[in-house]
Each structure stands twice: as structure tokens, then as C-alpha cells.
Nucleic acid binder design. Sequence first.
DNA 1: ACAAGTATACTGACTAATCAGTATGTATCA
DNA 2: TGATACATACTGATTAGTCAGTATACTTGT
Lengths: 193, 193
Amino acid sequence: MPPSRRDDLIDAAMRVFYRRGFHASSLDDIQKEGGISRMTLYNHFKSKDELVIAAMRRRDEIFRNKLMQFVDAKAKTPRERILAVFDFHEDWFTGNEFCGCMFINASAEFSEADSAPRRLSAEHKQEIVRYLREQCEAAGLSNPGDVAEQLNILLEGAIVTARVVGQVAEGGKDPGIAARRAKQMATRIIDVK
Amino acid sequence: MPPSRRDDLIDAAMRVFYRRGFHASSLDDIQKEGGISRMTLYNHFKSKDELVIAAMRRRDEIFRNKLMQFVDAKAKTPRERILAVFDFHEDWFTGNEFCGCMFINASAEFSEADSAPRRLSAEHKQEIVRYLREQCEAAGLSNPGDVAEQLNILLEGAIVTARVVGQVAEGGKDPGIAARRAKQMATRIIDVK
DNA sequence: ACAAGTATACTGACTAATCAGTATGTATCA
DNA sequence: TGATACATACTGATTAGTCAGTATACTTGT
């Protein structure tokens, strides 16, 4: 199936929303990014809000697929697979298009807790935790659910640290170090448990 | 010194920006919150951006003071002081005005890494790490700098988790659990090191 | 003690720009 | 010929920021 105009639009919206934020991105920005006209946009989506939702869904899909492909490619044992999740994050942080986590950002921008962006963000994170729990189960850890929640806190902390202090000029410098520190803590958790 | 009109304005701006976000808050909102006229605002600040900066500075001051007062009041030994930081966060998460961390939120909303809000956010986090390092030094830990960075990652992860999944209706429920999980990991770090 | 000056606050209407969303008409391609 | 995309210009609302004129209260000089 060739990428439709609708897909182009969602991809463009996803990139712009990720780079500049949801409220700061205008529909003109998205139009220019994707070479798409205003009316095509409104033929596919009723409102900007719906486009936000579609962009977040695609981001969730792409991100989780890339994560899983990375882990499948780089790790063999169950233990290595858990730690590879942190290596994936390090690569992400040090890449030049890193703008933090779109879902954390969405939770910061949308103040109403029961809005669609907030619900999608929570679902995304729950999917990450579910994936982590599967890896913990495969590794034979005694309480995979708790460990998965702990590992997720480490990942969230690393993401935020890479974004907040890792990207400013002075003091910050290396966003990757947050991932390595988190990995170090993760190692202790899964090896001791 | 009685609270001046300028202070009222900064407090109102701080509350509104924290609750609704920076881009989503209009000057009208802040006016209404503080009972302050438009011209008073522009007599004290050249622009909304400057008000954002002032609000962030005040938030930083208030937050760090509350944290330090809590720790001083609730903990005696150096080890207890480190762990009390996590208890402080649990109280914060479960309070009804919790809207995440203003500085994480600012880093999500402002895309330019060298903008004032991003720099202030980085500085705030570096101050937190500095405080944690002091506690680690007092506790006689062998590598207080590294441990402080690790503890900070745990705190960041807890804050984000409490915000993103702790505040949505289904699945979320208890924002405080993220703080307790982080504290559990922190305990292991400072007791093994 | 009192008048003038000064600083700060207020109200309310105005501007210029930007935004989401709409309407109209044309080109393309099956 | 009919669906889909295009370009462009519009509406109406909201926004940051400005301006004019007024009220209040604290100094200061005489």
C-alpha cells in the first residue's frame, strides 16, 4: 500500500508537533512541512485536535516498533534484552532529532487529565510497562510486574534528564549519560532480584 | 515588607502557568487570577516572556524552600534526610494541586534549547542535584556526585510517572506509588554503595 | 498644615497579528 | 465524469501589547 496523502499529513503533523510542541504548532506550519493544502487537511480531519490524536497514535506505533526492532536485533538473552532497552534510549537521546518524549510533552501541555492527549499518553506508557514486564517474565524474574514499573521509572527519569539538562549549552553537554546511569541502576535491580 | 502588587502578579502568573501551561495561559487569565490590571502588568514586565521568567524563578524558590523545610522537619540522620526527599515528593504527588513539575513542563513547551525557560529549567534541576549531593556527602557516601545524579533520575521518573499515568481515570489511580517505588530503589542505592 | 509633585494603581477601549476553521474555484487523474 | 488534491482568500475569535485618562496615596517644600 503506497503512502497516501493522509499518511503524509499525519507524518508531517507528527514531526512538527514533536519538534515545536502542540500549542506552538500552527496548521500553516504543518501544511508547509508536508506540502499539503488546508482543505485536504480538513477533508481528513474534523479539527486540529483530531490531527493531534492521529499524530500521537502514529508516534506511539513508530516508537514502539523501533524499540522492539532494536531489542530484537541487538540482544540475545532475556537479561540482555532488558538492558538493550536502555541502549535504545541512549541512541535516541544522542540523535539530533531528540525532543524529549512526545507523550510526556503532551501531558505537560494539556492540563485536563481526561483529555484525549492525556489518555493516549497514559496508554503509551502502560504499553511500555507491559513490554518491560514481558521481558522481565522471559528473564525469569520473581516479580516481573514490580520490576517493570521500576525500570519504567528509570527510563522516564533518563528521558527527562536528557531533555531538561542534557540539551542546554552549559553544564548539560551529554544527553546519553542519563541513559547509561539508568542502565547501571537497572542492572543492579535485575541482577539482585 | 508587605506583599507588593508586583508579588501578587508573579504569584498569580505562577499559579496559572503551572495549572494550565505557559502557551495555554493568556494574560487575561492571569489578570483575573490576581485581580490585577493589564497596565500594572506591563508596568512591571516588558512582555509575557519576562513574566514567565519571573514566575519560574519564584516557583524554583518556593519549591526548593518547601523541600528543604520538609527534610529538616522530618528527618534526623543523613540517610533519613535523603529518603525524606522521596516522602516530600509523595506528598506533592498526592496533593490536589499537583500538575507535574513546572520545569519539566517548561522544557516540553519551549522548543528552543537556549531560551530562557529552558535554561532556568536546567538550572533548577542542577540545584536539586546539588542539594542531593550535599545530603550524600553528609551521609558519607563514597561517590556522592554519582549517587546524586542517580537519585535525581529516580525523582524525575517518579514525577513524570505520577503525572502521565497517575492522574488519568482508568489504570492510573495512585500517583503516590511512583514516589514509593523510587524511594525503594533509592534505598538500595544508598545502602549498598 | 497644606498645596504640589510623584509614583503606582486602575478602567476600558484600541491595534495588529495570529489562529482555527470555511468557502470558492481550479487542476489532476482514474 | 467524479473524486481527490490543489491554491487562495475569507470569517470570527483570540491574543499580546498599547494608549488615554483617572484615582489614590505618599512625599516634599513652604
